[in-house]
Amino acid sequence: MSQLRTADLIIDVPDRADGRALSLQVEPGQIWGVLGPNGAGKTTLMHTLAGLRAPRSGAVLLDDQPLAEQKRRTIARHLGLVFQERQDGFPATVLETALIGRHPFLSSWQMESADDLKLAQQALSRLDVAHLASRLVSTLSGGERQRVAIATVLTQSPAIWLADEPTNHLDLHHQIAVMELLTEEAGHGKAVFMCLHDLNLAARWCSHVLLLYPDGEACWGPVERMLVPDALERLYGQRLATTELDGAPVFVPVR
């Protein structure tokens, strides 16, 4: 199983002071939630952790080796990313889309095998979109597309999941199903690192939390130490009422 670490990482958000350097470690089995208001740099952080964007300083290390020194193919075998925004290039079917998750594992001359196809179909079933397999992705609803995107990463089956708001566009039932899926993955020794907007989902499912402030300030640690009303109210500039349900805190904005 792989481990993701940042060493004095400062992400490159244009026109923003450096803020606090991130030195955190994502271990197998952990589920990290990144919380912060709009513009705090959550997506930039995700892309930096995936090596798609150069940091301003510091480094991201995958199994103690800087990402910048590794081939994209090697990285993609260990690390998968669910994007927040869909880039619609050329039309493709749902099954084809899921199948590209196998790309990093196939050599140039190889075709997808029956096993690869099976992995993709299982992933689609797991996300409840198997019945759409032959539909064009562009004809799906936002929530269906989001599930196809997650199914693609599930087909890729990375040791480290990076997910940029994986519950976006999803109805309540599917939000919970996705969180259950990610928890299950963590249970199998995978690491999950995701951005979330919903404090309560973070409180219920995350083991660790990173709070990102708009000015570049940041703090991180186990969920129970991070999700305290004072810190969250400062994070969002919004007063919150707190209660407890099934042993997890619940936060509700106050008018």
Binding site: G89, H103, S108
Partner: peptide, 24 residues
């Protein structure tokens, strides 16, 4: 033939392609 699958991935957009191991 050897480039084809990489092109398929590239057709989904450069970021997605990079995330899936294509040297874009």
């Amino acid at each position: 033939v050897p480039l084809g699958r990489s092109l398929n991935v590239l057709a989904r957009g450069p970021l997605q392609a990079a995330a899936l191991g294509v040297a874009v």
